[in-house]
Design a protein around this nucleic acid. Structure first.
Length: 789
DNA sequence: CTATGAGTCAATAATCTGCTCCAGA
DNA sequence: ATTATTGACTCATAG
C-alpha cells in the first residue's frame, strides 16, 4: 500500500504530504526519509515536530533505540526536557521538539545558526493541528520560517484524514528545482500528495449511530439522560473487551462513570455481570476518592482536572486491563495511544457558552481510538447523538469540514515577531510573507470564512492580503510598536522597543495593550488586577460548584487585596494568586468543601505561576522605558514574589527550599521559623526534630541550602550635595555599593535552571525613576564597584 | 416612632466550559 | 445540580 510513498521518501528528496487514518503506521515514512538523510550525508540533521510532549517522548524512545546502530544521536527538546537551549543538540542527528519550543528557539536564529543550518529535513506529525485555535498559528509561522531560512529544506508532513490535504500540499510547496517537471509538464509548485482512505485503517471499524429524541430542544435534558443508556450499548457491543467513552465535560465524565458503576452493581446482583472486575489486590490507591470508589468495579474516569499521578494510574489501569470502562473528556483523544475495542462518543455536542456541535476532526480523532491492532481484528464505534444529527453521522465516512487556518486570530503577534527578527523590513515584505502562509492558501478558497476587516464582500484574496496588512500596520503604528525610516529612498520599518518587548516576552497583543494602559505610579493591587485580566489566563474559569470555596478564601486575613465578591474568573484568579503567595493551605479548604476541585486547583496554579513572572517582567520593562519608578519597583517585587510563589515576608518563602512543602512550611512557621534567614540561623538538629526527619543529614542539608541563598547588603553614602540658591532644585550624588555578605558560593543557576540575576533600581520617594540595571550574578561580581549616578 | 441598612430565609430563576504548549542574561 | 436573584421578614440603630 505505502510502497509509492516509501519509494518517494527514500529515492527522491521531494516534499511530501500524506493524509491517512490514525494509527495506520505512518511513521515509517518519516523513518525512511531519515534513513536517506543519514546514508547520504554526514552532518545534516532531521527535525521532528509533534503537537504534544507525550508524542515527542514516545518518538524519542522509539527512535533512540532504532537509530542507535546507525550512530545517529536523538535529542528531545520540549518544555519538559532540562536542556534549555539548542546547545545539547549540537551533535544530534535527529531533533525532536514541539512547535512552541521550536518557535522560541528559532526566534533567536542568529545565535543558534551554527546548529540550525544543518537541519535539512523537517518532519511534521499530525499537521492537521494547524486548525487548532491557539496552537495552529505557531506551526504555520514556523514552517514558513524554516523554509525561508534553510536552503534545500525537505518537508514531510503527515495528517489525519482531511478533505483538503491538497491545500496543505500547496502550502508546504515543492522544493524542486526548475528542471523538475510534473506529469502535465509544468514546474512543480506543490508537495507530493498521498491520501489513504478509511480502508487503510489497520483495524476495520464497525460504526453504529444511535439517535435520541430531544423534544424540548433543551440539550441539558438529553445530556443528563444519555448516561442511563450507555450500559445497554456496552452489553450489546463490547464483547467483554475494553470500552472507552468520550464525554463533553469533566463533570459528565465522572457522572457517567458513577452511573455505570451503580448499574454494574445492580447487574451483578441480578447475576448478569457485564464484565469481570479486577482483583481487589490489583486496584490502585488514587488521590481522588471517587476513583477509589469506582476502581473495584473496573470503572474509571479521566480528565485534565485529575492529579498527574491519578492520570498516570488510570491510563496504566486501562492499558493493563484493570479497568474495563473508562469515561474520558477529550484528554485521551489526542496524544499517547490508549486504544479500546469499543469507543462510545457520548453526545456530539460541546458546551462553549452554548451547546455547539463538535468538529468532524475531533470526532474522527476519537473514533480513531477504536480497535487495538495488536489484540483485535476490528474495532467498534458507537456515536450517541440527537435524532436530527443521526443521518449526518451515518453519512460521515470521512471528515467533511476542511481544515482552516487560525493565523488571522493572532496575526499581529506573529508579524511583529517576524519584523523584529530582521535587520530591515518593509510592508511589501510582510505582504509577501502573508502570501506564503496556509492562511493565504485558504483565503483563496474561502475568503469569507476569515471575515477580514475592511475586505467587505470582496472576493479577491489579494485584496484580503492588502487589507490585512493595512490593518496590521495601522495597529502596530497606533501603539508605537513600529519604527519608520527611509533607507536609500525606500521606506523601511523595524520593531520599536515596545515591539521587541512584545516579541521577546511572548505576550498576547491584547495583554500587551493592557500593560501599556497601566497608569503611572501603579500600586501592587493595580498591577495584580491587570495581571488577572491577562488574555493568557482566559482559559481559567470558575467551574460550577467552585464559587463557594473562593468566597470562603476571600474572607481570610491573609488575602491582602480581596475583591468585593467573587463573581467572575478575574476575582477567582486574584484570590488564587494571593492565596498561593500567602501560603494559604488552599487544598485543606477544598477538602472541607468536598475536595472535588483539588487537583484542578493545582494545575491552574501551575499554569498561572508559570506565566505570571513573564507578563510582569514585560510590565517592568515598559515602566522602566517610561521612567515610571513606582510601577517598575512594585512590578519587580511581584515578579520576585510570583517566581518564588510567596510574598516576601510570608513563611511561604520557605517552600523555595528543597523538600519543604505545604506541611513542613506550616510546622516550621508554627515554631517561629518564618524565613530563609531563620532557617539559616537554626540548629540543624532542631530542624530535624521539628520536622521529624532524622535520616541522612536532613537538617544539615536544609540549613546549608538556606545559607547558600544570596544575601546582599546595600550601602548608600552621599558623595556630593549641591544646592542652588536661586531655585529649589538640589543635586545629590549617591554611590551605591552592593556587597555579597555571604561567604558561601552561590550557584549561578537556581534549582529550576533559571538564571539568577540582580536588579538595581533607584527611584525617588515620589516614584521617579533614576536608574535601572539588570545584571547577571557574574557581571555583578565583576563590577563590585557600583555605578555612579 | 420611623426610616434605613444589614442580615436571614426560602422560593424561584438562571446557568452549567474539552484539551495542549511555550516564553534566559 | 448548583448558584444567583428576589422579596418578605427581622432586628438593631440613628435621627
Amino acid at each position: 500500500m505505502q510502497s509509492t510513498v516509501l519509494s518517494t521518501a527514500f529515492e527522491t528528496k521531494s516534499n511530501i504530504v500524506v493524509s491517512a487514518p490514525t494509527s495506520s503506521g505512518k511513521t515509517v515514512i518519516f523513518e525512511i526519509a531519515i534513513a536517506r538523510l543519514l546514508y547520504t550525508t554526514q552532518q545534516q540533521k532531521a527535525l521532528y515536530l509533534a503537537p504534544t510532549k507525550g508524542l515527542c517522548s514516545e518518538r524519542t524512545k522509539d527512535w533512540a533505540a532504532k537509530f542507535q546502530h546507525l550512530n545517529a544521536p536523538v535529542v528531545e527538546l520540549t518544555g519538559d526536557s532540562n536542556a534549555l537551549g539548542l546547545a545539547s543538540a549540537k551533535d544530534a542527528r535527529i531533533i525532536i521538539s514541539t512547535p512552541e519550543k521550536w518557535d522560541y528557539i528559532t526566534r533567536r536564529w542568529s545565535k543558534n545558526d551554527h546548529i540550525l543550518r544543518h537541519i535539512k529535513l523537517l518532519l511534521i506529525d499530525e499537521v492537521h493541528f494547524l486548525r487548532e485555535r491557539n496552537r495552529g498559528p505557531c506551526l504555520e509561522v514556523l514552517v514558513s520560517r524554516m523554509k525561508d531560512k534553510v536552503d534545500d529544506l525537505r518537508v514531510i508532513a503527515l495528517s489525519a484524514t482531511v478533505p483538503n490535504a491538497d491545500d496543505i500540499a500547496e502550502w508546504v510547496g515543492s522544493n524542486a528545482t526548475d528542471s523538475d517537471i510534473d506529469e502535465c509538464g509544468s514546474p512543480k509548485t506543490t508537495a507530493d500528495l498521498f491520501t489513504f482512505g478509511e480502508t487503510y485503517r489497520p483495524c476495520p471499524l464497525r460504526k453504529y449511530v444511535y439517535g435520541y429524541a430531544n423534544p424540548e430542544g433543551d440539550y441539558w435534558k438529553l445530556e443528563g439522560n444519555l448516561n442511563s443508556r450507555i450500559m445497554q450499548i456496552i452489553q450489546e457491543h463490547a464483547n467483554g473487551r475494553p470500552v472507552l467513552i468520550f464525554a463533553p465535560m469533566r463533570k459528565s465524565a465522572s457522572n457517567a462513570a458513577e452511573v455505570l458503576a451503580n448499574e454494574f452493581d445492580r447487574l451483578c446482583e441480578a447475576r448478569n455481570r457485564p464484565w469481570d472486575p479486577p482483583l481487589p489486590s490489583m486496584t490502585a490507591n488514587y488521590d481522588d476518592p471517587n476513583l477509589n470508589e469506582l476502581a473495584p468495579r473496573g470503572v474509571a474516569y479521566h480528565h485534565a482536572g485529575l492529579s498527574p499521578r491519578d492520570k498516570r494510574l488510570v491510563e496504566s489501569a486501562f492499558l493493563e486491563g484493570r479497568c474495563f470502562v473508562l469515561v474520558s473528556t477529550s484528554s485521551l483523544a489526542v496524544g499517547v495511544n490508549l486504544p479500546a475495542y469499543l469507543v462510545i462518543i457520548r453526545g456530539t455536542k460541546l458546551y462553549q457558552g452554548q451547546w455547539t456541535e463538535m468538529d468532524d476532526l475531533d470526532i474522527l480523532q476519537m473514533m480513531g481510538r477504536a480497535g487495538r491492532p495488536q489484540f483485535d481484528r476490528e474495532g467498534v464505534c458507537v456515536i450517541m447523538t440527537e435524532n436530527n444529527r443521526k443521518d449526518y453521522y451515518v453519512a460521515m465516512a470521512r471528515g467533511e469540514t476542511p481544515i482552516e487556518s487560525t493565523l488571522h486570530l493572532s496575526l499581529i503577534e506573529h508579524v511583529n515577531a517576524e519584523i523584529g527578527q530582521r535587520e530591515s523590513c518593509s510592508q511589501d515584505f510582510v505582504e509577501n510573507w502573508l502570501r506564503g502562509t496556509f492562511l493565504f492558501v485558504r483565503m483563496k478558497k474561502n475568503l469569507r470564512h476569515y471575515q477580514i476587516e475592511g475586505a467587505g464582500g470582496m472576493n479577491d484574496p489579494e485584496h484580503g492580503v492588502q487589507n490585512l496588512s493595512r490593518h496590521l500596520f495601522k495597529s502596530l503604528r497606533e501603539h508605537e510598536l513600529l519604527l519608520d525610516a527611509t533607507q536609500d529612498g525606500r521606506s523601511e520599518i523595524a520593531c520599536s522597543h515596545y515591539g521587541d518587548l512584545l516579541a521577546s516576552y511572548f505576550i498576547s497583543f491584547k495583554t500587551f495593550l493592557r500593560l501599556l494602559r497601566v497608569k503611572r505610579g501603579a500600586s501592587t493591587s493595580d498591577i495584580l488586577q491587570v495581571l488577572c485580566l491577562a488574555e493568557e489566563f482566559c482559559e481559567i474559569r470558575i467551574r460550577h460548584g467552585e464559587k463557594g470555596v473562593w468566597n470562603k478564601i476571600r474572607t481570610l486575613s491573609q488575602i491582602r487585596f480581596p475583591p468585593k465578591k467573587v463573581t467572575n474568573a478575574t476575582d477567582k484568579l486574584s484570590i488564587l494568586i494571593q492565596a498561593v503567595l500567602a501560603g494559604v493551605n488552599v487544598l485543606d479548604i477544598f477538602k472541607e468543601e468536598g475536595e472535588v476541585f483539588k487537583a484542578g486547583f493545582q494545575s491552574e496554579a501551575r499554569l498561572v505561576f508559570r506565566q505570571a513572572p513573564r507578563i510582569l517582567k514585560c510590565l517592568v520593562d515598559i515602566a522602566v522605558h517610561r521612567e515610571d519608578g513606582k510601577t517598575a519597583k512594585d512590578a519587580s517585587e511581584l515578579v520576585r514574589s510570583t517566581s518564588g510563589q510567596a510574598w516576601d515576608s510570608s513563611p511561604a518563602t520557605l517552600r523555595q527550599l528543597d523538600n519543604i512543602g505545604e506541611k513542613y512550611m506550616q510546622l516550621l512557621s508554627e515554631a517561629g521559623i518564618k524565613s530563609i534567614g531563620d532557617v539559616a540561623d537554626s540548629d540543624p538538629l532542631r530542624m530535624e526534630h521539628l520536622l521529624n526527619r532524622r535520616s541522612s543529614n536532613f537538617g544539615f542539608k536544609l540549613v546549608q541550602q538556606a545559607r547558600s541563598f544570596p544575601d546582599l547588603d546595600l550601602m548608600i553614602s552621599e558623595v556630593k550635595h549641591k544646592r542652588f540658591d536661586d531655585c529649589v532644585e538640589s543635586r545629590i550624588e549617591l554611590a551605591i555599593d552592593l556587597k555579597n555578605s555571604n561567604k558561601e558560593v552561590i550557584n549561578v543557576w537556581t534549582a529550576e535552571k533559571q538564571p539568577r540575576y540582580i536588579i538595581c533600581l533607584t527611584t525617588s520617594s515620589e516614584g521617579e525613576l533614576f536608574d535601572y540595571r539588570r545584571m547577571s550574578r557574574q557581571t555583578f561580581q565583576n563590577c563590585l564597584q557600583a555605578p555612579q549616578i
